[in-house]
Amino acid sequence: MAVENADRLRWQELAHQALGDFLAAAMVEDLPSIAWTIASNGAMTGTVDALSFEPQEQRAAFDAWVSRLGAEPSERTDSAAVVHLYARFTWARNYLVGGAIRAELVPPMDAEGGV
């Protein structure tokens, strides 16, 4: 069965409603601002970027959103010592809406450009 455009738009509309709920809660609870995207299937991604936060602040922002959304975090470190944080969530008000929070914690470079 093919997915119709109307379905995709409905999923995006639900995600948009959820994002409004998330941002309203963030204002009240003083959660850090993060970048949000909504895919064509309605999946949401919250990204804690390195442009706005130092690595320890990124982790704190990630943890705050994970806690707020009741998500289960996971973590892995790659060969370049970058820590990848990821947590899937489902919106408490509607199980059809969900997504992930993510962050990449890049270690600082030394004077020679290495880790």
Rank of each mutant, 00 (worst) to 15 (best):
L9F: 09
L105V: 14
V28L: 01
R76V: 08
D30W: 03
E54F: 10
G20L: 01
D110G: 09
P73K: 01
A6F: 02
P107N: 04
E72W: 01
S79R: 14
G42R: 05
A50Q: 12
S40R: 11
L96C: 04
V115P: 07
R8T: 12
Q56C: 06
W36M: 11
V83H: 11
L9M: 09
E13S: 11
E75D: 04
P55R: 05
L23P: 03
P32L: 03
A64F: 11
G70R: 00
Q12E: 13
Q58N: 11
A60N: 03
E112D: 03
T37Q: 14
V3N: 05
Q17C: 06
L105F: 06
T45L: 14
V115K: 13
F53I: 02
M109F: 07
R10L: 04
Y95V: 14
W36D: 08
A111Q: 08
Q56D: 10
G113A: 09
E72H: 01
L31W: 10
R93H: 12
F53C: 00
M109I: 08
H16I: 12
S33G: 10
F22L: 15
E4D: 08
E29L: 09
T47E: 12
L85E: 11
N41I: 05
V48L: 07
R88D: 13
G46P: 06
L105E: 00
S52E: 04
E112M: 02
A80L: 06
P107S: 09
R76T: 12
G46E: 02
V82I: 13
L69Q: 06
E4L: 14
I34T: 12
A80T: 07
D7T: 13
N5L: 05
I34C: 07
S67E: 00
T47V: 15
G42N: 08
T45S: 14
W65H: 07
N94K: 09
R102C: 10
E4N: 04
P55M: 11
A100D: 07
D63A: 08
T47L: 06
E75R: 14
L85N: 12
D78Q: 08
M44S: 10
L31I: 06
L51H: 05
L105Q: 07
R88L: 13
A100M: 07
